[in-house]
């Protein structure tokens, strides 16, 4: 399994997926920096992350980036006709799909951590330029808890996107899934409806805003793992052509 994971990571080297994984998390940091440059007073570090950076990331950027990233991961195989090669090797199929899922989940976690890093850098630079450096200490404990819950809650979303990306040769399908899911989540956020609280794309928002986010995180995490098992079973029987 370690060798398969190493190979999956190696395939990302020099790919567009890797470029996306590095560039996309920089956007919230850039926005945070620009916001601080034009700020007329110094904000708290806590509010920069919980009211600005993480909402932007979890509601809009994260689902879109996951859609694009999983699509690119799937297209690495489809464009190279890699399935023909991979699946004809004497390796259990489930290991190949599980390795891809682990890599994508790990990439999502890494991107989220990069978001925090870039936001810290961006806000620091913006604050230095405007003279309104963020106040207070970084809320490490709160951030760590929120990020952990966020990552658990997005597992289902990530698995759905990966499933669509690996199942279909066309890159359009996973992208449409991602765009539709994100639009629904934004509509839910704007209308403040509770009817779609358990929709996978809405879960990150709920984890940030609900009084008890653990339920949503557990639902997304456990649901994601169940879906992962179903996905592996389905792809294992699928005829890739």
């Amino acid at each position: 399994m370690i060798a398969i994971l190493q190979v999956e990571i190696r395939k990302l080297n020099g790919s567009l997926a890797l470029l996306l994984a590095v560039l996309a998390p920089a956007l919230p940091g850039l926005l945070a920096g620009l916001s601080l440059i034009s700020a007329d007073r110094a904000p708290q570090w806590g509010s920069i992350f919980t009211s600005f950076v993480l909402p932007i990331w979890s509601l809009f950027l994260l689902p879109m980036v996951v859609a694009a990233f999983t699509t690119l991961v799937g297209q690495i195989e489809y464009r190279a006709r890699g399935w023909d090669h991979l699946l004809a090797l004497p390796i259990a199929r489930w290991k190949l799909f599980l390795a891809k899922a682990i890599v994508v989940l790990a990439a999502t976690a890494t991107m989220t951590l990069l978001v925090l890093l870039f936001a810290w850098v961006g806000a620091s630079i913006g604050g230095a330029i405007s003279g309104h450096a963020p106040l207070g200490a970084l809320p490490w404990a709160k951030l760590a808890r929120t990020v952990l819950l966020l990552l658990a809650g997005t597992t289902m979303l990530v698995v759905i996107q990966l499933w669509a990306a690996l199942r279909f040769a066309s890159f359009v399908i996973p992208l449409v899934v991602g765009i539709c899911g994100t639009l629904v989540a934004m509509a839910v956020a704007m209308t403040r409806t509770d009817q779609a609280a358990w929709f996978p794309w809405v879960l990150p928002l709920k984890i940030l805003s609900a009084p008890d986010p653990v339920h949503y995180a557990l639902f997304g995490g456990i649901g994601g793992l169940i879906l992962l098992a179903i996905m592996i079973g389905d792809l294992g029987r699928h005829d890739f052509r």
Binding site: V7, R10, K11, N13, G14, I76, A80, G82, D84, I91
Partner: peptide, 25 residues
């Protein structure tokens, strides 16, 4: 085996393409 066409990862070197399979095997 190879089926229908050479299925290679264009963004990797020839050596890296072989190395991915070598590791898997």
């Amino acid at each position: 085996a190879f089926v229908e066409s050479a299925s290679l990862y264009d963004h990797l070197t020839g050596y890296a393409n072989l190395d991915t399979t070598r590791r898997l095997l």
